[in-house]
Design a protein around this nucleic acid. Sequence first.
DNA 1: CCTATAATCAAATATAGATTTGATTATTCA
DNA 2: TGAATAATCAAATCTATATTTGATTATAGG
Lengths: 198, 198
Amino acid sequence: MARKPAEQTVHPDEIIRAAAVVFHRQGYHGATMADIAAEVKLTAGSLYHHFPGKEDLLLAVLDRGLAQITHDVRAVVESSDPSPAKLRQIVHIHIHSELEDSIIAAAVIFESRVLLNVPGVRDRYVSQRDTLENLYRRVIDVGIASGDFRAVDVGIFVKTLFGALNWVSVWYRQDGRLTEAEIADEITDTFLAALHTG
Amino acid sequence: MARKPAEQTVHPDEIIRAAAVVFHRQGYHGATMADIAAEVKLTAGSLYHHFPGKEDLLLAVLDRGLAQITHDVRAVVESSDPSPAKLRQIVHIHIHSELEDSIIAAAVIFESRVLLNVPGVRDRYVSQRDTLENLYRRVIDVGIASGDFRAVDVGIFVKTLFGALNWVSVWYRQDGRLTEAEIADEITDTFLAALHTG
DNA sequence: CCTATAATCAAATATAGATTTGATTATTCA
DNA sequence: TGAATAATCAAATCTATATTTGATTATAGG
C-alpha cells in the first residue's frame, strides 16, 4: 500500500544549500522562490513539497550552517591537547567552513537579522550562536589560565575575532592574492600576537 | 517669479538618516518606502519629491556614510604626529561614527551588496571604500616603516580590522556591560598588541 | 501490470509595496 | 495680496512574487 519516499530526485539538503547560495548572493528578501528553485532545476511551486515556506528555508539554512561549523569547532576544542595550537586550528576550520563547505555560514551572518524578530526563532538562533561563541571562549579562557595568553576581555575578544572571520566571506575572492589557508594563517598570526604575553 | 526652495519642512538629510535607520533595522528589501516615510512623518508618495526612488535613497545613505567616516578618519591621519597613537584615535572615531553619528555606516556595511550589481554604482562605492581603507593602510605602513609595528600583511590586517570594527554594530547594545569608549579601547589594545614588535 | 503516493509542473490567486497621479495646502517673493 | 512653485497627501496603478490549486508523471511495492 504505502510507499517509501521515492528516491528523492532532489534531496532536501540540496535545496538548503541552493537556498544558502541564493540568500548569500541576493539577500533574503532579494531572493525569490523561483531563483532558489532554478538552482536545483525545479519550479517555485515544487519547493513547497519540501519546505512549508520561504522563511522555513532560511531557518533551515541557519540551523544547518551553525550546526555544521559548531560541530567542526567542537571536535577540535574537545580533542585532548592544550590551547594556543587550537586557536589556529579553529580559525582555519571556521574560514574553511565559511568559504567552502557552507556558503551557508555567510548567509547566516547576513540574513540572520531577518528572523531576529520572530520570537521563538530568535531564542533558538541566539542559543546556537552562544554555543559556538562559548567554544571559542573556552579556548581563550584556558590559554589565559595557563598563562599562555594575555588576560584580555574574553567577551570583546571573541566578538572581535568573529567579526574579522565573518568579514572574510565579504572580501574573499577565489582568484585573490592569497589562498584560503594563507589568509587563515595571517589572521591567526594577528590574533595570536594579540594574545601574546609580556 | 521663481522661488527659492522653501524652508524644507523636511531636510533631505533627515530623510537620508531615516532611511539609514530603517535599512539597518530591516534590510534594504525589507524596508518599505512607507516605513522610511513614517520615520519623518511623511507618506510614501511624498518621498518622491526628494528622491527619485528607493535605490537612490540607499545610494545616498552609502555615500553619506562613507564620506562622513572617511572625513573623520582623514582628519586624524593627516594631522602631524606619528602613528601608534593614531591607530587608537581612528578606531575610536570609526566605532563612534558607526554607533552614533551614523547608523548610516552600519547600513553601509550590510546593504552595500544590494547595489554591487549595478555597474556604475559598484565602481563608485568600491573607490570610496578603497579611499577609506587606504587611510588605514597608510597608518599601518608608516608604523611598520618606522619600526613601531611588526611587519604584517597590511592588506589582510586592514580587512581583519575592518571586519572587527564593522561587526561592533551588530552586537553592540546601549545597555551593555561596556561603554562605547571602553569597547573601542579594548579592540585597539588587541590590534596594537597584534602589531607589537618582538 | 496495477495502484497508491511522491514529485513535479503550469497556471491561478493574492498581496504587498514601489511608483504615479491629481488634488490640496503652504510659502516665498514680486 | 496674489501668482508661481514647493511640499504634501490620499488614492489609483502596476508589478513582482509568495503561496495555492489541480492536473500530470514517475516509481515502489504488491
